[in-house]
């Protein structure tokens, strides 16, 4: 890999395990602070080799509790773990109550664990705009496994695919009949299905519906989603859950899918970054430049249509 230039002190501190600096730079990334850019750039070549496990599913299915148990399991296996837990920001105040930490058992003296709560800050899809960059910081900081807990998801909150190497979809009994499992969206992105609260009545039905779904499956990439049943009140199935995740990670290496998936993720990231930059620039110009303001006025007056103006604007990109 190409050298990324001399290492800024903050990057060095993160690599050397300084958690305070790590926490600070995470905030800078979240805030879009330009100070973070040289740090993330220089650390980038060190990243991309760790499992990033996305845990998603509707609100209240037990994602936080499962993550707590997974962390305990990984610590038994002597693996270090970082968790990023995303909760929604208010569309009204921009504020947020980040409550996933409550479910997290106290490990005040365990340096092998790092937990960070993150607000979605207006992003839809289940994760924050900064989540992916933050997982890379945690990767560079040396954690063996990175767990990402999404916002409680709906059927089309699929952004976890753009962040995680393995996606775990967590469900509970009585979420709906088997037709729900045929619908596009959430059920398509699972590498592992986890039927949580498996001690509740109906868990066997939920599991059976998933078994049928997977049996019908198209083997899109040569991987059949695994199905595990878990409970966190009387912990059970947690070892199976980790084994299923680990099996998928092994599959990614064995099949070459890891590289293909990463290609898909980085292309979508690059496109997203361009969209950001260009969108911001165009929005500013539409406000400032009289000629462009006039186009917008014409759209308002119905003498031009939005597509025509968009085509004209697109032609001006990068030509100034």
């Amino acid at each position: 890999m190409k050298r990324a230039g001399p290492m800024p002190p903050a990057a060095r501190a993160i690599v050397n395990g300084d958690r305070r600096v790590l926490a600070r730079v995470i905030s800078q990334v979240e805030n879009g602070d330009p100070a973070a850019a040289p740090v993330t750039r220089v650390l980038y070549p060190r990243t991309g080799n760790k499992p990033v496990v996305g845990v998603t599913g509707p609100l209240g299915v037990g994602k936080s509790s499962l993550i707590n148990q997974l962390v305990a399991r990984l610590r038994e296996l002597d693996r270090t773990v970082a968790v990023v837990a995303v909760d929604p920001s208010s569309p009204y105040s921009g504020g947020s109550v980040l409550g996933d930490r409550i479910r997290f058992d106290r490990r005040a003296d365990d340096a092998g664990v790092f937990f960070r709560s993150m607000a979605s800050r207006g992003e839809v899809g289940g994760v924050a705009a900064a989540t992916r960059e933050v997982t890379r910081l945690l990767d560079a900081a040396g954690f063996d496994v990175i767990l990402v807990e999404t916002v409680g998801s709906g059927q089309v909150d699929l952004a976890v695919r753009d962040v995680a190497t393995t996606s775990v979809v967590v469900l509970v009994p009585h979420l709906g009949d088997e037709v729900q499992t045929l619908k596009a969206g959430l059920f398509e992105i699972a590498d592992v299905f986890c039927v949580n609260k498996a001690d509740l009545p109906g868990a066997d039905v939920a599991r059976r519906d998933l078994v049928e779904l997977v049996a019908l499956g198209s083997d899109r990439s040569g991987w059949r989603p695994k199905i595990v049943s878990t409970s966190t009140t009387q912990p059970s199935g947690i070892e199976d859950l980790w084994s299923a995740i680990a099996a998928h990670e092994e599959f990614l290496d064995r099949s070459g899918a890891r590289r293909a998936d990463e290609r898909r993720r980085v292309s979508s990231e690059v496109v997203e970054l361009v969209r950001e930059k260009v969108g911001r620039e165009l929005a500013g110009r539409l406000e400032r430049e009289p000629a462009l303001r006039h186009w917008v006025d014409q759209v308002v007056e119905r003498t031009l249509d939005p597509h025509t103006v968009a085509d004209r604007l697109a032609k001006t990109i990068g030509r100034r």
């Binding site: 958690r19 305070r20 926490a23 600070r24 995470i26 905030s27 920001s89 208010s90 009204y92 105040s93 921009g94 504020g95 947020s96 109550v97 980040l98 409550g99 930490r101 409550i102 106290r106 005040a108 003296d109 790092f114 937990f115 960070r116 709560s117 607000a119």
Partner: peptide, 28 residues
Amino acid sequence: LRDAGFEVIYAGLRQTPEEIVRAALEED
């Protein structure tokens, strides 16, 4: 505080001083 625009990390009950300080540092 949420309604005033803060991001509130709610750590909940029965926290030791060590846990509180660790959470404060990790959450910056």
